[in-house]
């Protein structure tokens, strides 16, 4: 796809790209942090931005938000060139940086008010929106508490509240669940999912389940380069072409593993209570043989389902491959 032509509105309504990045490159002095990456996120998508620490996720997000200027290339938010009129782009943008930006001497309410006013809301709207986001982020009890006294999880929520105070079309969240306890992680994920119902979200994380749970699509970045971007299902096949079967069998686990491993088309068997997971070679459909083999042994098959490859596996394979290649 060529660069977007702002003089052709028909194309704009047709494609409706909310975040677009081209040839984006970022040097910190001599060090190359982001190397010539490009992607496009359309309206309503929730996209995960995945990569190990130091892969260039935050740098990319900072360039998209206009906090940093790219050494080369461009980023557009809601069709505004972030290297030229980033201010217009920033109006459509909510951003939660990796380090939650909090003034610890302010109360939740004062902070959210300040954020709302800075984002261009008038006083009345700000007051209304503060109440709304406090409710959305479940911060009612902490409305008048100094931010310094909030726990990590609540600080994260305040950060999130700040980013949606002006009801932005585009939300950019840098590691929104980092460092908070599991229960709060689950709640935060729910929240993000809820927010994504009517917004475009770019979410970075190095915690894979989070991405696979929340996002429809992932962009995997490693050492400043995009190594893969697609939906999670497509990625699974992209990586190996293999599929996986997950079985629950009533029988001695070791023996079951042996029998299953012997079936043609099954390349690998792993057991993790209570499931056996089989990797199936591409194009093979060994389900029938599996059933008959189990029946022959007198073990009962409680369940069998086809599953895609886990994001961890894809991720490890991709990044590992990247390392191998370089």
């Amino acid at each position: 796809m060529g660069p977007f032509d702002p003089l052709n509105p028909s194309l704009a309504t047709f494609r409706c790209s909310m975040i677009r990045v081209e040839d984006l490159t970022c040097y910190y002095g001599e060090r190359l942090a982001v190397d010539n990456i490009a992607f496009n996120i359309e309206k309503g998508e929730i996209v995960g931005f995945l990569g190990p620490n130091g892969a260039g996720k935050s740098s990319t997000m900072r360039m998209v938000t206009g906090f940093l200027m790219p050494t080369r290339g461009k980023a557009w938010v809601a069709d505004h060139d972030m290297t030229r009129d980033s201010r217009e782009g920033r109006r459509h943008l909510g951003y939660l940086p990796e380090i939650v930006p909090l003034y610890y001497d302010m109360t939740t309410r004062a902070y959210l008010q300040y954020a709302g006013r800075l984002r261009g809301l008038d006083k009345a709207t700000t007051a209304r929106r503060v109440d709304e986001v406090v409710e959305i982020c479940a911060l009612q009890e902490y409305r008048d508490v100094l931010l310094a006294k909030l726990s990590k999880g609540f600080r994260q929520r305040v950060g999130l509240a700040q980013s949606i105070i002006h009801d932005p079309e585009v939300l950019i969240l840098d590691e929104p669940t980092i460092g908070i306890d599991p229960i709060q992680v689950a709640q935060t994920r729910q929240l993000i999912k809820h927010l994504g119902e009517n917004r475009t979200i770019l979410l970075s994380s190095h915690i894979l389940p989070e991405v696979s749970m929340v996002c429809e699509r992932v962009i995997i970045i490693h050492q400043g380069r995009i190594v893969a971007q697609d939906s999670i299902e497509n990625l699974s096949s992209l990586v190996t072409g293999d599929e996986q079967l997950r079985l629950r069998v009533r029988g001695p686990a070791n023996e079951v593993s042996g029998v299953l491993g012997a079936i043609a088309g099954v390349s690998e068997v792993t057991y993790q209570e209570p499931f056996h997971t089989l990797r199936v070679e591409a194009g093979k459909e060994p389900q029938g043989e599996i059933t008959s083999a189990l029946v022959a042994k007198g073990w009962s098959l409680l369940s069998m389902e086809t599953v895609g490859m886990s994001l961890e596996q894809i991720f490890l394979q991709l990044t590992g491959a990247g390392e191998g290649a370089s």
Binding site: R62, T65, G66, F67, R87, E88, R90, R91, L93, Y95, P97, I99, V100, P101, L102, Y103, Y104, A115, L118, R119, G120, Q162
Partner: peptide
């Protein structure tokens, strides 16, 4: 130091 600079600079304020 607080990291709020990133917040301020990404609001539509000159």
């Amino acid at each position: 130091k607080l990291g709020t600079w990133e917040f301020v600079l990404t609001t539509p304020v000159r």
